[in-house]
Simulated scan of single mutants.
Amino acid sequence: MELDYETLKLIWWGFVGLLLVGFAITDGFDMGVGTLLPFLGKTDEERRVIINAVGPTWEGNQTWLITAGGATFAAWPLVYATAFSGFYAALILALFALFFRPVGFDYRSKIEDPRWRGAWDWGLFIGGTVPPVIFGVAFGNLLQGVPFHFDAETMGVTYTGSFWQLLNPFGLLAGVISLVMLTFHGATFLQLRTVGAVQARATDAIALSGKILLVALALAAVWSTFLLDGYRITSMPPADTAFMPLAKTVVRESGAWIGNYLAHPWMLIAPLMAFGGTFGAMRASADERPVAAFILSSAAVGGVVLTAGFSLFPFVMPSSTDLNSSLTAWDAVSSHHTLKIMFWATIFFLPLIVLYTSWVYRVMRGKVTVESIRATTHTSY
């Protein structure tokens, strides 16, 4: 089967989006668990229950982030280079926060000193809290446009912003949504995997974080629709050709981000998943149906990520200082040959990843209890 260049560009936009959704759903809940750790675990044994709820799977979950980064580098090299230059300080901060996770998991229970374990509990909290905020702020700034431009002669990219400029009101709102969303998702996982007092506190956390998430999502929807200028392409070369970013014409106008939903109403499934999944997970949790709550929470997380992606399409990284430098799914990609090779590699390996991940979750299913921690105190985290 021969795939034309335009089709491959669209497929790879979908692949990268799928990887981001996979990362948000899988690594998202264990980051949420890290955020909840100091608050839901009142004793050392309860905190060990919380840690071991995600202990068997957190490392595998992080591979989704690595895979998404690798796919971005291979499929969208201009986006990778520009983003890692412009968001360098923010990404380094997220990376250093993530360092607490492997070290915290491995060393936290090696020494029985309460001060030692308490310090690592807060380290795991940092590792579960800071990255979601950073990722959310980054998405918030993508929807506003990032201050970069390409030089017409050398095609070198220049970023003219700063780390502090990323912390603008809408960017911070997006960071709050990301953090609360993953905290909510982590709480549904703990309700599914724990019993007793920890499960009861997780249920309370679902009710509180779900309400905050619904309010924050509604605020972001109103803000992005009526108060935030979006981007629209007015002219560009054929999408099945290779061309440089400056070959198109882009305008910024009010309400542009809802244009895709008006043109393609089926895309409304994403925001409906976000709101409906959150509300449904809250109801399922209150009705003591943790499996349904976790599934609906996963749908909500996927819906939020897809809403951002559908709103931006075909933009991947809009430029706020030189509109025509904005990077899109059509002009930020690798060559036709590269995309084709990676397509077949993905078709082969992605199902394998999903299969062995599903097998791991099946093997590791079941409740984590204080009694099970006591029985395996020297082998558990």
Rank of each mutant, 00 (worst) to 15 (best):
W64T: 11
G34E: 04
V33K: 01
P38C: 02
E46N: 02
G69N: 11
T35W: 11
A71F: 08
G41F: 02
V54E: 09
G41H: 00
P56T: 02
P56V: 03
V33A: 11
D27S: 13
L36P: 03
F73Y: 15
K42S: 08
M31H: 14
T72C: 12
E59F: 12
T43L: 01
A68Y: 13
K42W: 05
D27G: 10
M31T: 14
E45C: 05
R47A: 02
A68T: 11
T67K: 07
G32R: 03
A71L: 08
V49E: 07
F73V: 02
T67N: 11
G69Y: 11
I66N: 13
N52H: 10
E45Y: 09
A53M: 10
A71K: 04
T67R: 08
T43W: 04
V54M: 12
V33G: 04
I51H: 01
M31G: 15
T67P: 15
L40A: 06
G69A: 14
G70K: 09
N52G: 04
F29V: 00
L40N: 00
T63Q: 15
F73T: 01
V54Q: 06
D44Y: 03
V33E: 07
G70R: 09
G32W: 06
T57A: 15
W58C: 05
G34C: 06
F29M: 10
T72L: 14
E59Q: 12
T57Y: 14
D27M: 09
D27C: 08
F73C: 08
G32C: 07
T57Q: 15
P38G: 06
F29T: 00
A53R: 06
T57V: 15
A71R: 04
P38Q: 03
V33R: 01
W58H: 05
M31W: 15
T43N: 06
L36E: 05
T72A: 13
L40Y: 01
I51G: 06
D27L: 12
D30T: 06
F73H: 08
G34F: 07
D30K: 04
E46C: 02
